Each structure stands twice: as structure tokens, then as C-alpha cells.
Simulated assay, not measured.
Amino acid sequence: MKKLINDVPDVVTESLAGFGRAHADIVRVSQDPKFVARADGPVSGKVGLVSGGGSGHEPLHAGFVGRGMLDAAVPGEVFTSPTPIPIVEATKAADGGAGVLHIVKNYTGDVLNFETAADLVGAEGIQVRSVVTNDDVAVQDSLYTAGRRGVAGTVLVEKIAGAAAERGDDLDAVTAVAERVNANVRSIGLALTDGTVPHAGQPGFVLPEDEIEFGVGIHGEPGRERIKLEPADRLVDRMMEAVLGDLPFASGDQVLLFVNGMGGTPLSELYILFRRAAEILDERGITLSRSLVGSYVTSLEMQGASISVLKLDDELTALWDAPVHTAALRWGL
């Protein structure tokens, strides 16, 4: 295993320390317990947004803390759910008196620990709502979930719900927007190689040179099937067939197309995938209204990518376009 680390137990602590120094104008970092919050937070009278999960998916979630998106994020150890106490403290740090929305990816540990934290802060008088993201069409259940997994579509939920909170919507309205985004986004991923968790010291799975994992999860969970490696266009055809047929998407729809890298995929290859996905939308009479390309929900150094498609309406489009200032997403300011 070759990694640019010191001691394995210090990976998350030292990474957070570096993140906090690099983006001190946007965030403040707590190490005990571990969470990241807006440097200017809590914002009085604004609904707070909190998300979190295991580390190893950077910039998710800490990279999305800032104006127009999250108010706090809670990183667990690598690929390990955060425990309730840091979630409690992050929720308090995000509470500006208008309540807090938890955005939780659908993994059993995340869901249970965020539920426990919500109960604890609720007993202290903080009103909490929760939206569980489940955009992955690859599988219905896995060892990690009851139902579909929350994957890259979570970024779109955080951005759009964050904009709703920033414009002054109340807790019920922000929750409704987050639920609407989650209901209208679908994702699927594939992997050519797996990442190496530092404490494991070896990849979670090893694929033959001529095979890929189709429908892989963001922790390297098995997907729909292992298939032979094909040209990029054919793989995108498979991915878009799975995504577009699930909602379903139809001619006349306006959509946001998000091609996400898993950590070890060059941007040049992501644009090859985006090019073919956009062609498929054109062929089906679906309007490509907004786009995002880059590595935003990673799986350590996994070589692979995911495609997410979000059905837009005028309000969701305006909220996507609204100003955002975080370490990973910045526009309109």
C-alpha cells in the first residue's frame, strides 16, 4: 500500500486539520468531537443543514459546508459512520433558531446514528427533520442498507436544499425541497478498480483486467453484475438505460446531468462519459439544462464513475443556480 499518510489512526484527524487551515475563511473545524461548521455560523433565523458519513468520499461532505449549502458536516472514520455525539454537536453548531435538517445517505449506520442524535437534540428543544437520500438504482438492498443506497445525488440534494434555506424558507419548506430533489434524481456507478482503506492495507476487491463492477456502491459494495470491460460509449449506454428507465424520464423533461469521478478517474475520461450521456438525452428529446462534471463523491482512489440525472422544474433550476460558496462548489458570488 502506497499512501501519503503518517500513522493510519491519524488519517482523518490530520486531513481535517489541513482542510480547516486551507479553508479557514469558509469553515471552522472541531477535533473533539470531529465536525466541520460554517465559519460564520450559526446563521440566526436560518434553517441549518447538517450531513455526514464516513470519510474517504471527499469532498463529500465537509467540502460542501458554506454559504448556500451545508451549515455543518460530520466525518466518521474512513468508510465508517459517525457516532451520535459529534452529530449532536454539529447540529447545535448549525442551529440558528429555525430548526435543523439532517441529510442522511441511506446506510444503516448513518441512519441509526443520525436518528439517535436527532432524539438527543430534540430533547434539548432543537427541532430536527431528516431526509434520507436513496438515489442509487443499482440495487434495491445491500449489506449496508434497507432499500436503495444514497450516493452522488446527495450532492444535488444538499445544494438545492441549501439554497432554499439560504433564501429564508422555513424548516418544513426546506425539507419538502430536499425530498423533491431526492424523489427526482437517479444515479448509478461503475468501477474499474477498488480503493484501499488505510487500515485494511489492500483493495476491497480485485477485478481481472478485462472486467468492471457495474452498479458499484461508494464503499466498493457489489453492484448489479461484473461484466467485461467495453468501450466508454457502450458503458454509458448501459448506465443511462438504467437511470432513465427508473423514474422514468421522458421527452420534454429538463434535467441536470452530473458525471462524478470516484477518485482515480481523469477528468478527460469523465468528459468522454458526459459527451455520450448528453447525446443520449438529445436522442430521447430530454433537455440538458444544467450540468456538473468532476470528482465530488469519491471512493478513495477507486477508478470509476457515476452518472446522476435530476429532473428539474423552474424552482429547482433557480435554486441550483443560486449563489454557493464552499470549498468544493463556488459560483454566483
Rank of each mutant, 00 (worst) to 15 (best):
R226T: 13
V177I: 15
T317L: 14
L316Y: 12
A17K: 11
M262T: 09
P33F: 07
D32G: 06
V236L: 04
K2V: 10
G45H: 02
E179G: 08
S299L: 07
G48M: 04
N6T: 13
P323V: 01
M239E: 14
A250L: 11
A94W: 06
V128R: 05
D10T: 12
V155A: 09
T145I: 05
G66V: 02
E315F: 01
S251M: 12
G99W: 06
E315Q: 13
V174P: 07
E124I: 00
D71M: 00
I307G: 11
A318I: 03
A117S: 10
A200I: 12
D119T: 06
I272D: 05
R149D: 02
G68D: 02
G109H: 01
G252V: 09
G245I: 14
P222K: 13
M239G: 13
L247M: 12
S251R: 14
R330E: 15
L156T: 11
H57R: 02
D40P: 08
D71V: 01
S268F: 14
D314P: 11
T196L: 01
L273N: 08
V128Y: 02
V104Q: 01
A278N: 12
A138H: 06
E14D: 15
K311T: 07
V47S: 07
I188M: 15
T13V: 14
V50P: 04
D169L: 13
G125A: 03
L281N: 10
G217P: 11
D7F: 13
L310H: 10
R234Y: 00
E225K: 12
P266E: 08
A191M: 06
D110E: 03
P222C: 03
H325A: 13
F35I: 04
V174Y: 03
D313K: 11
R149P: 05
V185G: 03
N184V: 02
A277N: 11
T193H: 08
G263V: 06
P42Y: 06
E269Q: 14
E58S: 02
V65H: 05
N6Y: 07
E230R: 12
V157S: 06
G220A: 07
K34E: 12
G168I: 01
A176S: 14
V151Q: 07
V255Y: 10
N260Y: 06
V47C: 07
V255L: 09
L156D: 10
I26D: 04
T145M: 04
F114P: 03
L281F: 09
E315I: 01
R38P: 01
V324T: 15
